[in-house]
Amino acid sequence: MADDKMKGMEHSEVHYFNSYNHHGIHEEMLKDEVRTRSYMNAIVQNKHLFKDKIVLDVGCGTSILSMFAVKAGAKHVIGVDMSTIIDKAREIVAVNGMSDKITLIQGKMEEVELPFPKVDIIISEWMGYFLLYESMLDTVLYARDKYLAPNGLIFPDKATIFMAGIEDGEYKDEKIGFWDNVYGFDYSPLKHTALTEPLVDTVEIKAVVTDPTAVLTLDLYTCTTADLAFSSPFVLDCRRDDFVHALIAWFDIDFTACHKPIRFSTGPHTKYTHWKQTVFYLREVLTVQQGEQIRGVLENKPNEKNKRDLDVKISYQLQTDDPTRQAEGSCEYKMC
């Protein structure tokens, strides 16, 4: 997971973590309390589900989830990861006295051989920015189809992408307008690039102008890799008179198998996570009034040349009776 995650980060960050701190990304993920605590609660509070079960941890990283599963009473846990972090995971598992309970395998899920033909539970922290960017979901689905016993469980088992419109004049000016005047020079060629690159950043809740709306729900028991290329219509209800500079996306994660369902959100309305939110700047500024709607379609598909990149297209139309404020358009983005 670690290497995959790194690819999802801003390039300067990748450079940073690659170069100066091998463990920075793991530190960041472990210190993401919303993430780690949700997994811990989902696993450790459901001992009745884990007791004596065979568990597969897809993309185990430092093996924290595997160790949670052992704590919850699992009979045996198999952790699989492509990255060399698995060497550290082995040391960690040994020092915590769980070597006999956890088998760690380095390699691709599609290529490794598991010591069990079937598993009862799959646990995985596979989510990337915008849920799907550099995510490991396809690997999880492969593992599900090949190894999960009938009636087996998946932790988590549901993911939902949400969208909303935000007022973001100041920051848009700083990020996009910056290129209009760089030390007195016109840098507009770089402005175009900036506009096509979604920004991963934290958005304040007070910037949100519309109600959020769900645009995609994935049920991990039934979805397939084909579902990862989608085209979803959306309707955003404007909550107040304001401007809309960008649409944002985030996701919620559900562990519905739990005795008491556990859910966490990466939205602007709740605690910070390392996934932050994904900001798609519009070229134009929409002037919206309370009660009006922004209707549109969100399209997402893996890039044909490089499957790890995402091509995102957002078309939008402001539904208003005021002819002076009518606006519609479509923007293409590339997450790479």
Partner: peptide, 11 residues
């Protein structure tokens, strides 16, 4: 780290 010893990560 959440009750686990991860000193291996210090290296």
């Amino acid at each position: 780290v959440y009750g686990f010893d991860m000193k291996a990560m210090q290296a």
